[in-house]
């Protein structure tokens, strides 16, 4: 039963995960929390680990949740489940590639739906962040200072794009620095 639930959840995440890694996070969060496979804190920790390890966040989360919930075969199952919808949909698209590209380009139903989904996806990412603003993740005022500094540094290249801002806004560097700061403040 656990295997079936894991498979269905991650198949659903793969099927409705529009808009890449960050947008998929809110789907994963909802699934793992409603099934009790992971606590909110664990979820944030695994997102942090995903940011500093290679590969797509969706695969990283799927593998981790599968392993913690049901061991090695659980992780094989969840990773397969999140990839499966892509395989079905993308292969259909590939098989009908020339037909589709003529049929869909400029089709108002298709183009408008994609445009609207882009707006919705922004909401999904926002909800993923909002759901994580909780006392378990923000334990004191220092947490908010770390949040503000990291957010500011990440947005910086939008205003001043150069080599320096590019380097200091890198997510891996920011996570490592936040970890070092956490060690000196809380240890």
């Amino acid at each position: 039963m656990l295997y079936l639930a894991l498979f269905l959840s991650f198949f659903k995440i793969g099927l409705f995960g529009f808009g890449g890694g960050l947008a998929i996070l809110s789907l994963i969060q909802m699934e793992v929390e409603s099934h009790g496979w992971m606590s909110q804190q664990e979820f944030v920790d695994i997102v942090a680990v995903s940011q500093v390890t290679p590969g797509p966040i969706g695969i990283n989360c799927a593998t981790y949740v599968g392993y913690t919930a049901a061991g090695f075969w659980g992780s094989v199952l969840t990773t397969t489940a999140i990839v499966l919808p892509s395989l079905i949909i993308m292969l259909s698209i590939c098989k009908a590639y020339f037909w589709l590209s003529h049929k869909f380009q400029g089709n108002p139903y298709y183009e408008q739906t994609l445009r609207m989904l882009r707006f919705t996806v922004i909401g999904l990412v926002a909800s993923a962040a909002l759901m994580l603003i909780k006392p378990t993740n923000f334990i004191d005022a220092t947490s908010w200072i770390i949040f503000a500094v990291v957010a500011a540094l990440t947005i910086l290249p939008n205003f001043a794009k150069n080599k320096v801002t590019e380097v200091i806004s890198h997510p891996i560097l920011l996570i490592v620095l936040a970890g070092v700061a956490g060690y000196f403040i809380y240890a």
Partner: peptide
């Protein structure tokens, strides 16, 4: 201790790209 510092940073890393999006 390190993860206590990392958690708010992760939330910021999820929230900040909203601006660009």
């Amino acid at each position: 201790a390190a993860f206590k510092g990392i958690r708010p940073a992760v939330v910021a890393l999820i929230a900040a790209p909203l601006f660009k999006m």
